[in-house]
Amino acid sequence: MIPLIFVLIGFLALASILYLVKGHHATGGNLDELTSQLRPIDVDAFRNLIDAREEEFLRQRLPAHEFRSVHRERMLAAVEYVWCAAQNAAILIRLGEAAKQDSDPAISAAAGKLVDNALRLRLYAFQAIPRLYLGILLPHTSLRPYFIAETYDIMTRQVVMLGCLRYPTRGMSSAL
């Protein structure tokens, strides 16, 4: 019985590798289409959702069963935000890869930083989602992914920096 399980594991691993290898080639794409897929995220609202003081305030003001329900809704909304941030990061990785090919070394370097941060954000996002679900089950634990908001902010700053380098006449420097 045990050898047959490993035969099955072998074939499943083979199928997984063949499936996963398809998406790994650097194929390029339409940048306009990619840009249109970026979805806005209100980082303040996300911070508010995972704020421990806000949670404590709700815990003191609401009856226990109502607090649990509100807390669950808040954590599910936070999961939505994290998913959205992760999807934006995936798009920004592609945009950054395109900008990395630019002949200007400053643009290429800025794009490199953006790609690095977007990758880090995706990695954090996949750590954060289980934490948020765990937060629904165990409302008293401190598992809030503050680092997501911080990394998203850094990534946003780098996108603007990249925009400034690519389109210097658009008056973005005052924002920085």
Binding site: N30, L31, D32, T35, A98, V160, L162, G163, M172, A175
Partner: peptide, 28 residues
């Protein structure tokens, strides 16, 4: 070969959006 991309990437409207995001962040 390097991957081929078409289009302009981040356009003015997108940059303005990211700009607003940044201004809000800096104001905090």
């Amino acid at each position: 070969g390097a991957p081929k991309f078409v289009g302009r990437g981040l356009e003015k409207s997108d940059l303005e959006f990211w700009d607003q995001e940044l201004q809000r962040m800096v104001r905090r």
